[in-house]
Amino acid sequence: MALVTRHLTAVFALPLTMWQYIVRRVLQAIFTLFVLSLITFFVAKVTPGSPLGLDDPENAAKITPAMRKQLLEQYDLDKPVPVQYVLWFTKFIRGDLGLSLTYRNEHVQDILARTWPISAQLGLIAALLAISLGMLLGIIAAVYRNTIIDYLSMFIAVIGVAVPSFVLAIGLILLFSLTLHWFPVTGWGTPERMVMPIVVLMLGPLATTARFTRASMLEVIKQDYVRTARAKGLLERVVIMRHVLKNALIPVITVAGPTLAGMLTGSVFVEQIFTIPGVANAFVGAIGGRDYPMIMAQTIIFGGLVIFMNLAVDVAYGIIDPRIRYS
C-alpha cells in the first residue's frame, strides 16, 4: 500500500520538464487527431458504396431517382467531399457529431452515450482482471520457474493466447448455458449475463500479460542487485515484490496501455456473439452501412484513447523508473 501511495504522490510532484513534456504531447495528439480525421473522412468517401442502402442492388429497385436525390440532400451527401468535410468539422468542434445514417433518428453522440458505458464497463472489468491476474500468474511462474506450477501457469497462458475468442465463447456457451444451465446465452446488465463475456474478453490479454511478466521477472532475477538483496538477508517476498517486480514492470506496462485502450473500445466478436449493445456492435453496423458520421466519431475516439494510453504509459515509466528522463 505504501508503494501505491508513494507513486500517487509522485504524479502530483512531477518535475516541471515532465509537465512540459505532457503539454507538448497533448498538442501533438490534437494535431494527430486532426490528420486522422482528414484521412479517415476521405478514405471513407472514396471507399465504394454509399449509405442508406442507396447502391445496394437488393434495395435499389425500390428507390426512385427523386427519393434518392431527396435523401442525398437531406444528409449533405450531394456536396463535394471537401465541403462535406468542412461541414462535418464545424459541427464536430461544436460537439455535434451529426445524425447517424444507420440509426436515422439518432444523433451519433446519443448512440455513443448509450453504447460506450456498456463497452467501457465490460472492457474495464475484463482489463483489470486480465492485468492483475496475468501479473499474478506471471509472478508465480517466475518464482517457481521450471516447476510444475510454472508449467501449469504457462499452459494456461498459452491456451489463452492460442484459443481464438470465438472458439472460447462457443465452448463456454456449450458448457455453461446448454449443458449446466448456469448462465443465459445473451444480454447484458445482470451479473450472470456478464460472466462469460468478461472471461472471453480477458483471457487473451491475461495470457499476454502473464507471459510478459514472467519473461521480464526472469530477466531481472538474474541481476546482481537481486543477488545482493538476497545476500543481505532480505525475505524472499520482499526481494520479489520490491526489487524484482518493480523493475520488471516496464515491459508489462508497455503492453498494458494499448491493451486497455483496445478493451475499452469494445470487442466486435464478444459483443456480437453475446448480443451486448456496446460500441463495437454499433461500429460494425456503421462501416457496413457507410455511416460516415459514426465512422468519424468512432475513429477519433479510438485514436484519442490510444494516444492517451500511450502517453499514460510514458508517464508511468518515469514514476516507476526515475532514471527515465523526458525531453
Binding site: 462457443i170 456457451i173 446448454l178 446465452v185 453475446f274 448480443t275
Partner: peptide, 15 residues
C-alpha cells in the same frame, strides 16, 4: 430480441 449471431440465436433457442 436482436440477436445477430446465428450460433448465439440457436443456443438461445435451446436454452
Amino acid at each position: 430480441k436482436m440477436l445477430k449471431n446465428q450460433a448465439t440465436a440457436i443456443a438461445a433457442y435451446e436454452t
